[in-house]
Design a protein around this nucleic acid. Structure first.
Lengths: 159, 159
DNA sequence: GTGATTGCAAACCTTTTGCACGCCA
DNA sequence: TGGCGTGCAAAAGGTTTGCAATCAC
């Protein structure tokens, strides 16, 4: 990743912007609304760079200096299991999360592994191969582009 | 994965079927043609199930009982670096390889993580979002389907 | 012969698990 | 108060690195 806190989403600068949604989420799934979970939720929602658990952990720690990595990681997995976060497919490095669980597409930088969301309507209604539906149950589809991000495209630095 | 050695490709049952290709590969990239690399090459070519390094290791070991895991893993990475194998994107579990480096599409079972190649011409000529080409250099594109494979679709067992 | 490659072992990183304590409902 | 959730620590799993011995060229 190119920076410790890139691509921050602009929607909710003040503290409580996401709390109602968080509260609803917990109620709906029988989860306890702990400050740790709230902080993870907030940071995840505010991240557009598909952070790893480690990255979220670092960010959460600025507000909650005593959270443990485990709690952050477990919370992210919990969120994923109730559909409040998505696990992003990667290439063997650490697991990464996406606050956007709607179907969308991605571009992955083959060099620095940055992930960028791609919105492109022509990708949204792709047909499913008919011979596949005989044996498989297709639950989702997505276009994954590979390439070089602007920074990696420029020069050999910033590996 | 559902079995230790599933989806074996049928092309080369006899030993030497892939050796000429292997030999050429090594020559072209200045690699030494060791028996370990040959065995890894053979097993990778013969696998249609996108095996992990560990899986390839187990298979190679049947013919070369003394190979080490490191050698297998390093060889796979070497092959990937010279374009003779592809690293498959996954969801946080171990890295997996594909002998087919041509652009194709995939279906991933969300339950058992089985990966199946998908060939579907309508997927092959997808346009690239124009606004992306300004900043990014797009090198490849692929459709990734998520779903349930036949075995996982049937019942709760075999997780 | 010489340098690339191997095998072993240890290091490293990420993720998972067990358990006692503390806090939310 | 009861039980879920947290934090700590250790374990587990996968990948990488260093190095001496070996083997392909």
């Amino acid at each position: 990743m190119h920076a410790d806190e890139p691509h921050r989403r602009g929607e909710e600068d003040e503290d409580g912007g996401v709390y109602p949604a968080f509260s609803t989420l917990c109620e709906r799934h029988g989860l306890r609304a702990t400050p740790q979970r709230a902080a993870v939720y907030r940071e995840l929602r505010g991240s557009a760079d598909h952070p790893s658990a480690e990255t979220i952990f670092r960010r959460v720690r600025r507000r909650l200096p005593n959270v443990s990595f485990d709690t952050v990681n477990r919370t992210l997995l919990t969120f994923a299991s109730v559909g409040a976060a998505a696990v992003v497919e990667g290439f063997g490095d650490s697991r990464r999360f996406d606050p956007d669980t709607h179907n969308h597409h991605r571009l992955v930088c083959v060099k620095c592994r940055a992930i960028r969301d791609v919105r492109y309507p022509p990708y949204d209604d792709l047909p499913v191969p008919p011979e596949l539906t005989r044996d498989f149950e297709v639950l989702g589809k997505r276009v994954v582009l590979q390439g070089l991000c602007p920074l990696c495209r420029q020069g050999p630095q910033r590996g």
